[in-house]
């Protein structure tokens, strides 16, 4: 793996005392395929057919089969979990601003960039920028992480 590629999947050590606003704490590329959607449907219990049937997606006027918003939300926080540890995640919110179309062959690639947005008393707000292609798919994607334990 070249240096550049390594950086794309980088994740620093969790050093709560060293955090600065604007600092990148994690970055990752995630692959979502039709298989991922079927797996998520089963695991979550969300069997809305727009997430696995092209004919149903087309019938309701969608550009294609879409990833579950909750799958995008659930996967996008993983780089932060790997950095801080799962028990430090106190609050996590997103707005679903743009659907992620999942091509039957090519799937979709999501890019997640996690930066320190704000430092509080015993907490840090990590802001996620989540893009598919060049377009942002989540808005106000914020994770509050405990920094006092």
């Amino acid at each position: 793996m070249s240096g550049t590629e390594a950086a794309r999947f980088a994740q620093g050590a969790f050093e709560p005392g060293q955090l600065e606003v604007g600092q990148v704490v994690a970055e990752r590329e995630l692959r979502v395929t039709r298989d991922s959607l079927v797996r998520y449907a089963g695991a979550s219990g969300d069997f809305n057919a727009i997430h696995y049937r092209d004919d149903v997606a087309a019938a309701v006027g969608l550009p294609g089969v879409l990833a579950h918003g909750m799958l995008t939300m659930g996967a996008a926080v993983q780089p932060v979990i790997d950095w801080a540890g799962p028990a430090r995640i106190l609050d996590y919110q997103v707005r679903f601003t743009r659907p992620v179309v999942v091509d039957p062959d090519a799937g979709a690639t999501l890019h997640v960039l996690a930066k320190v947005g704000q430092l509080g008393e015993g907490t840090a707000r990590i802001d996620l920028t989540v893009t598919a292609g060049e377009q942002t798919v989540l808005g106000k994607a914020q994770v509050v992480v405990a920094t006092d334990r």
């Binding site: 991922s36 089963g42 695991a43 979550s44 799958l71 659930g74 993983q78 540890g85 799962p86």
Partner: peptide
């Protein structure tokens, strides 16, 4: 099952 579906890798 849910963890794998959201591509979680953390051992906990």
């Amino acid at each position: 099952e849910f963890a794998r579906a959201v591509q979680a890798t953390h051992p906990e």
